[in-house]
Measured scan of single mutants.
Amino acid sequence: KRVEVKPYVLDDQMCDECQGARCGGKFAPFFCANVTCLQYYCEFCWANIHSRAGREFHKPLVK
């Protein structure tokens, strides 16, 4: 058996893009583990950032 640990998915993290400004101060539910991102995102910022060319295939890690 093999266990994969993702220590970078933490609870209670603010969106790295808007710092809570676009999501009413809620914590960010998404983390993008792609090396070009490596950031936490609220729903609004995830949709906005990941609609751009080259990022549309990134998969979010959801808390």
Rank of each mutant, 00 (worst) to 15 (best):
Y41S: 02
R52T: 14
R52V: 14
A53C: 09
M14C: 08
Y8L: 11
Y40T: 04
D12V: 06
M14D: 13
Q39E: 08
K6D: 13
L10K: 14
P29S: 12
D12E: 07
G20L: 00
K6V: 08
C18R: 02
C32N: 01
N48V: 12
Q13E: 04
F57K: 15
I49Q: 08
L61S: 15
C45T: 00
H58K: 03
N34E: 13
N48Q: 11
C15T: 03
V35L: 10
E56F: 05
E4S: 06
C37F: 00
Q13I: 06
Y41A: 01
R22T: 05
F31S: 02
A28M: 03
F44Q: 15
A21D: 07
C32E: 01
E4H: 04
V3N: 06
A53P: 15
H50L: 00
Q19K: 15
R55E: 07
L61D: 13
E56D: 11
D12G: 10
C18G: 01
V62R: 15
F27N: 09
D11K: 10
E43A: 05
C32P: 01
G20A: 03
A33E: 14
Y8I: 11
E56W: 02
V9Y: 06
N48D: 12
N34T: 07
F27V: 11
H58A: 01
F57D: 13
V5A: 09
L10T: 13
V3W: 01
E4V: 06
H50E: 02
A53T: 14
Y41P: 01
I49S: 11
F27D: 08
R22Y: 05
R2G: 09
G20C: 03
G24C: 05
Y41D: 01
V3Y: 04
M14Y: 14
R55N: 11
T36R: 07
K1W: 00
F31M: 03
Y40S: 07
C45D: 01
F27L: 11
L10C: 10
V9H: 13
D12L: 05
F44I: 11
L61N: 13
K59L: 06
E56H: 07
C42Q: 00
F31P: 02
K26C: 05
C18P: 00
A21F: 05
P60I: 02
P7D: 15
K1M: 06
D12Y: 05
E43H: 09
A47W: 08
R52P: 06
C18V: 01
C45G: 00
C18Y: 00
G20Q: 02
T36D: 15
E43K: 07
V3Q: 15
D16E: 13
M14N: 14
Q19G: 11
E17M: 06
K1V: 03
A47L: 07
K26N: 08
C15A: 03
V62S: 09
V5I: 08
G24N: 15
I49M: 06
I49N: 06
C45M: 00
C37H: 04
G54F: 07
Y40V: 03
A21R: 11
P60T: 02
D16R: 12
R52D: 15
E56V: 04
F31V: 02
K1D: 12
Q19C: 06
D16Q: 15
L38I: 08
A47D: 14
C23Y: 03
C18M: 00
S51W: 05
C23I: 04
F30H: 14
K26G: 09
R22S: 11
I49Y: 13
F44P: 14
K6Q: 09
F27I: 06
A33C: 07
G25R: 09
L61E: 15
A47P: 07
A33D: 15
E17P: 04
C32R: 01
G20F: 00
E4M: 05
K6S: 09
L10E: 14
V3S: 12
F30D: 04
G24S: 10
R52N: 12
R52Y: 09
F30Q: 12
A47V: 06
R2S: 13
E43M: 04
Q19F: 07
A53F: 10
P29E: 08
D12Q: 13
T36L: 08
Q39D: 02
V35W: 05
F31T: 02
D11Y: 08
V35S: 12
K26E: 09
A47T: 11
K6Y: 03
P7C: 01
C23M: 06
K1H: 02
G24Y: 09
A53Q: 15
A33S: 14
E56Q: 06
N34C: 04
P60V: 04
K26Y: 03
P29N: 12
